[in-house]
Design a protein around this nucleic acid. Structure first.
Length: 262
DNA sequence: GGTAATGTTAGACT
DNA sequence: TAGTCTAACATTAC
């Protein structure tokens, strides 16, 4: 389930289990997950190294793999639509695509059923973020900076929030949730939003992301009156009694309340 | 069997 | 130019 809150959860999971561990073996079980990099290169560059730091930007995870007196290499993971991590001593997940074996006998599996994710290597995460043109991470953004992102924009709010080059980390589910909780229609033109609405979107974004990250840690979800539990046409809106509608916006299935989202 | 799925991207259109 | 749409990628679950 990889949007920003999930990738943040994977990052913490990585830190908890895989940090400071030496990689003794790497098993690329399906090369299609590697993108451009060759399997031999990927394995050769990581083997024998130790993960010393893990970072996240938007939906991207970076883990520094260090070896004394050699330049750092960073493992870069993108989780696509169905990516996940599993640290285990026992059975591997069915769709494990890359498996890192550690000195202590445990293994970290990068699994991804649909193979839309990527595992590769980068020399510097900041350079990667710059090259890719990724926007700022929503959790490291002030209200003022967020307001600046909306300035001089045409078009609808949902596509804007989904565009990783504008702001990095939001996906289909959480953008719908943010707009639902602020009462803004997904197709509302950005230049027809008030300053107060902009502030409300910013506040909801932070609130929802933080709450989701916090609740992932406890295996719970967003409150029962959140849109995420009612993503079905014809559902009764738990906030205003309106009807949940479905539309396609920016190529993605979008749910919203026809009554209170304007 | 048809459809849709939390993502990204190239190409085309307005 | 900026914004939006479509199709494609691979695989499963309903």
């Amino acid at each position: 389930m990889p949007e920003l809150p999930e990738v943040e959860t994977y990052t913490r999971y990585f830190a908890r289990h895989a940090l400071r561990q030496r990689i003794v073996r790497i098993d690329v079980r399906d090369e299609r997950i590697l993108g451009e990099i060759r399997k031999e290169t990927f394995v050769r560059k990581l083997k024998g190294r130790r993960f010393t730091e893990v970072r996240r930007h938007g939906k991207h995870l970076f883990a520094r793999a260090a070896r004394r007196s050699e330049p750092d290499v960073w493992l870069h993971l993108h989780f696509g639509m169905t990516g996940d991590l599993a640290y285990t001593r026992g059975e591997l997940p069915r769709f494990a695509r890359v498996v890192f074996d550690f000195e202590n006998g445990s293994r970290l599996a990068f699994e991804d059923m649909r193979l839309f994710g990527v595992a590769d290597l980068v020399s510097d995460p900041d350079a990667f973020i710059g090259d890719r043109g990724l926007g700022p991470d929503p959790l490291q953004l002030t209200q003022k900076q967020f307001a600046a992102l909306l300035e001089r924009r045409r078009g609808a709010i949902k596509p804007l929030l989904m565009t990783q080059e504008v702001i990095a980390g939001l996906g289909n589910l959480y953008v719908d949730e943010i707009l639902y909780q602020t009462g803004i229609h997904p197709r509302r033109a950005v230049d027809r939003m008030t300053d107060a609405e902009g502030k409300a979107v910013f506040a909801a974004m932070r609130r929802i992301l933080r709450a989701t990250i916090a609740r992932h840690a406890r295996e719970a979800g967003l409150p029962a009156d959140s849109l995420i539990h009612h993503r079905e046409t014809g559902e009764r809106c738990p906030r205003c009694g309106g009807t949940i509608q479905r539309a396609v916006v920016f190529g993605r299935t979008t749910y919203f309340c026809a009554k209170h989202q304007r």
